[in-house]
Structure formats: C-alpha cells, structure tokens
Amino acid sequence: MPELVPPLPSSATLVAQNIAKSFASGRLTTPVLSNLSVSIDAGELTLISGPSGCGKSTLLSILSGLQTPDAGHVMALSESLQTMDSHRREAFRLHHTGFVFQGFNLFPALTAREQVRLPLQYLDLSSQEIDRRTDESLEEVGIAHRHHLRPAELSGGEKQRVAIARALAKLPALLFADEPTSALDAASGQVIIDLLHRIARAHGTTVLCVSHDPRLISHADRVLTMEDGRILNDSRQLTPHRPQDRRASC
C-alpha cells in the first residue's frame, strides 16, 4: 500500500441528517429508520450494533449510496448523494468507496489476485499501477502467498481477506463492512476486525462496520447502538483494543 499516513484529525466524512426510510409490503408500510441524524469521522472504525431488524443495514446502505432515503439528506465527502443520478453514484462508489459483505461474493473462476485486479481495471490506471496496488493490498491483508488460489481453495477467513483486499486496492476514502465476521470463527473474525481497524488508522479511511457480533465492540473506536430505527447510544472508546502489530494470519 502507499506510504502510511497519520490519522486524519477528527472530521466528519459522512453526515446523515433527519433521514427516514420505510418499506411497503402490500398495504403495510413498515418504518425502518425515522428522523435519524449521525456523522461519521475519518480515520476511525465506527461500529453500528444492534439486534436484527433494528435498521442498521438499511442505515449502511443509505450512507453508502446503495439506497436513497425517503426523507433527509446524506453528505459523503462533502457531496450530496441525493443529487446524483445512478451513473454519478456508481462513479462516486468506484472512486471513493469500498465494500466488504458477509458472504464474500468472490467470483469462483478468478484467483485471489484476479479478484483484486478486476475492479481496478475499471479505474483509469496503468497496468503497472494495477499490479502494484494488487500486490500491496494482498500483502497488507496477509494473503499474498495465496494469491494464485481460487475461492474454493481458500478458508472463510482467507476469502474475507481477499474481499477486503479487493475493496482496499481502490484506496477508498470510505469503507463499508456489513457483518464481516458473522460467517467466520472467532479467530478469523478477530483477524478481520483487526485488519479493518488498522486500515482506518493507517490510511485515514472512514470505516463503517455493521455487526450484531458483541465481540467486535471492544475493537471499535466508536460504537453506535441502534434499536427500532433510532440510535440509542453513541459511545466513543478512548482505548479500544489495539490492532495486533503482526500481519493477519488465519
């Protein structure tokens, strides 16, 4: 990865104001988020936790521009996501955001290295730059020695690290992770959350993670607790569990 930069001063890169979202099923309309405001800072790992159905994944999809709110505004990197058409939003995501999902979602036909290269091909980069970023991302997540393997030959933790490398190689300012450890055993989950924390610190990336896994709380810089579409508690941890210094291995 490029040279390490010191954590950015606390500054909001993601701001949601009075957002609301509801889903209709037949005649029934279920409110999921109601009048919610929040701002997320760069350079730290923010965890949204709460029980299933509390609206945390919906909040993540709105903050990342995958869905639009029924009401309210979202500013990402000082740009209003609502004013963008779908093409502009795709371009914004291409240049500024990375995603890590619970299900890894890796193409069965591609090796780890090709999984990471693929999205980079859609950025206007030279092949040398693509190679450099691919190698550095795989190195950073500790999977460089497994670069030639396809998903079927990797463990769950390794697959998730490839997925993180794929997101990381784009050098995103915003990194969204949805239940990144839910499908993993404890040790692998520990490695993944350490990795996300280190990315936030080392690259000044805004890392927003959604999880109902209580083990992650101690690793986050900031924890937003949600229930019934509202943020009940916003706590900042002064001394979160530090990411381990060693390279990830699981």
Binding site: E90, R93, H95, F101, N105, L106, F107, Y122
Partner: peptide
C-alpha cells in the same frame, strides 16, 4: 453469479 455482479456494482463497476 448475481451476488458477485452486485458486489462489483457496489464497488462502482457500472
């Protein structure tokens, strides 16, 4: 591969 295509779209591939 619909989930993988969706992931690429999330990452900004149009």
């Amino acid at each position: 591969s619909v989930n993988e295509y969706a992931t690429l779209n999330a990452l900004g591939v149009g």
